[in-house]
Design a protein around this nucleic acid. Sequence first.
DNA 1: TCTGGGGTCCTAGGACCC
DNA 2: TCTGGGGTCCTAGGACCC
Length: 426
Amino acid sequence: MDNKIFALIDCNNFYCSCERVFNPSLKNKPVVVLSNNDGCIVARSDEVKALGIPMGVPFHEYETFIKKEKVVVFSSNYSLYGDMSKRVMDILSTFTPAIEIYSIDEAFLDFTGFKKENLEEIGRDIRETVLKWTGIPVSVGFSLTKTLAKIANRIAKKEKQRGGVFLMIDENAMNEALPKIATGDIWGIGRKLAPKLENMGIKNAFDLKKQDSHAMRRIFSVVMQRTVMELNGISCIEIEEAAPTKKQILTSRSFGKKISEYKEIEQAVAWHTTRAAEKLRQQGLRAGLIIVFITTNPFSKVDAFYQNSFGITPENPTKDTGELINLAINALKKIYKKGYFYHKCGVILTGLTLDVPAPATLFNETDPVKEKKSEDLMLSIDNINKKLGKSTVKYAAEGLNQSWKMRSTQKSPCYTTKWEELKRVR
DNA sequence: TCTGGGGTCCTAGGACCC
DNA sequence: TCTGGGGTCCTAGGACCC
């Protein structure tokens, strides 16, 4: 049988690149994008990487340095990035229908059966097309498994002379590339496993490839075994074209400031429940369990730490925001303790089932009239909010002044998703 | 002052059953 | 005196990903 061929396409510094598309003057200038609540640095342009600012660090630790170096700072603007991502993915799908959208800025494409001689050319074509039509630069890596394609992509991105494309198919290319990849940079090896492997003398991808996969399973787990096999060109992880249905839906945020008042936390919990219920209905699901959690700041050196969660099962799986808010508030009352300064709360919907009419059984009777009323209400709320904007219609429990809302001080306009924030051309 | 948010999978161990 | 063994299901915790 012929080998499989996977490509990994990854947008370069994706969030920074999105900001640059609408602000061309930022080209060649250092740019960072912050996480929600302006907490951490989650995207860096090449110029920022060159300054030595690491990924994922708290913003405040580098704020002075960033000002001194005149780095342009953005709060995250997920409506913008989500929309740009969709445009990129639509273009990628025209190269092969076998595509797995792996994250907001990455996709695996299956090129099994394509002629090896043509791949390099296809890679360049992908790069040029995406850049021309969206303004986003991407890197393309080809290889025999997903794990190897990740590595090929990394090389394509790092070694500028390759022009953003790297084909890692034959033995020579692998032998040259794998020793350059540190253990911790292999897909599936994280911050706990990397030091363990290094202690065993396994310093890079080439070393890990040479290990006996059965022995590695015994020492670690089946996940490690798969990684070793994938490094050897044996594909164990398939492309998932259709996204599997979600097993849980989670919404949570840190507060913009410390909060101790019950009423404010209740509003935030109601707000999260509303968002989660919206996602639930969008995906055609019902929830069989709702869990609420609250926590104080685990990093605080002065405030006492407390965290807790509580789950409640509705009588029947539900998608009704009002019912879910009631359950959420009951759960919150079980865990809220006076006297703590809370930092974050959230809601998890799980026990998800497809939204089909509940089977009428003798013991589990739903009221069809009530059910119909709820169905209609949810439909109208979703339609109004879709047409006129998020939270046009909302539940009283969400509150009006929302003093707990997250910080977002440097957000760019939603150029592509809000009419009133369209870019003006003089 | 200030440290994101949203997910998945695997394993170990306890409860329970026959 | 002496208390099995195999199987399933569930949950918590740990690891990973972007």
